[in-house]
Write a protein that binds this DNA or RNA. Structure first.
Lengths: 209, 209
DNA sequence: TATTATACTTACCGGTAGGTAAATAAAACT
DNA sequence: AGTTTTATTTACCTACCGGTAAGTATAATA
């Protein structure tokens, strides 16, 4: 294989990946229904039947992207292994890592949020509820442990879990929805820390790590 | 005017209102781009040029609905007069009323959220940022007052404001996104109360009202 | 009653939506 | 080299999109 041909292959991303990338970008920018197949393929530099060759339909392409995002979110959540330390430290670590992971995949996360909050707009249903549910359960488990081992006061466990998840969720949404977020990772840790300080039992009160 | 004709007029809602109502419903259910003018007018029981007669275009109809929603949100926020009492009581009252008002207008609020989080999908830009901004400022003002007058500890004011607004926002989103919300008004007050308990200065610690 | 204004209809417009058939080019295999 | 498989193209399909022209019906006014 000569060098020119070899270089062409290296410089030319696979058609399939190109379509996926452009579709994610356009679906994120414009929504499923407003993104036409025509502009998708133009953007990827191929012709329309190529899209149908690889994905069967516009919907097939969309589902492939959604499967990718779901897999990514599943992986990310699975990576949130429970580190050692106090419950407080583990919660701060949990939210910190969740936040950083999301910030590294803004387009995918933004699309997931748009689907969660928005109408289906002709796209097939994707269940993103379970990610939020999983996070709430994980936080609830840690909170219960903290209350049980005396690290936290005898607080309403559900209320504390919702307060923590809500705080994190809204600050993360700020990264998604604003060109220049008004609060970031440091602010997140401050707010989570403040809630945890308030929930701490008297003889185990801790400040920010 | 005979009775039969009179009854027909009374039973027949104005065409304009009917179009607005159906459009809000369909835009909320399906999104702007996936809702065709054809199904809008069918749903309202009129023909297509009637929509153009009253609103000029699909976009004109959409903007009219958005203006309605913006006006409603403005009005609701303005009604959140600062009641008397401690800062804690006022914050609980503020969030309670904000929550109840939103719950009374789920379709409008849901559409606003979808627009805030989602891509424009061919619809004209609507600035819903300012509502969230206004709420954050109002809460921030109350927090500052609480810290200043000694009711709250010397906490990071921004962190506390974001914690409170985030908690409220996520629980309110639960009303929007779930058929059967797992947490409601009572849970909101518990969670907000918990954060406020934690932020309270030692000699002014209060429990739920 | 005739005229004007308002409200609504039918039929139509140019353009675009997602998708496909047939043909061709390129790569892989025998 | 010939054949088969894979990848891609050109040209086309039906249905639908937002919007409009011309006409008609109804209500209000002079």
């Amino acid at each position: 294989m000569d060098k020119v041909r070899q270089q062409m292959i290296q410089d030319n991303p696979a058609v399939r990946e190109r379509l996926l990338g452009e579709a994610l970008r356009l679906f994120t920018e414009k929504g499923y229904a407003s993104t036409s197949v025509r502009e998708l393929v133009e953007s990827a530099g191929v012709t329309k039947p190529v899209l149908y060759y690889y994905f069967g339909s516009k919907e097939g392409l969309y589902l492939e992207i959604m499967n990718g995002i779901s897999g990514l979110l599943d992986q990310r959540i699975n990576e949130l292994q429970q580190a050692g330390g106090t419950v407080r430290q583990r919660l701060l670590d949990f939210f910190s890592r969740l936040f950083v992971g999301a910030r590294e995949n803004i387009p995918a996360v933004r699309l997931a949020y748009a689907i969660y909050y928005g109408p289906p707009q002709g796209a097939p249903f994707i269940d993103f509820n379970r990610f939020f549910d999983t996070i709430l359960v994980m936080v609830g488990t840690l909170v219960a442990e903290g209350v049980q081992n005396g690290e936290f006061r005898q607080v309403d466990r559900s209320a504390l879990a919702w307060a923590l998840v809500g705080c994190h969720s809204t600050i993360m949404e700020e990264q998604i929805c604003r060109q220049t977020p008004r609060i970031g990772h440091d602010g997140l840790l401050s707010a989570i820390g403040l809630i945890l300080d308030g929930a701490a039992a008297k003889n185990s009160a801790k400040e920010l790590p």
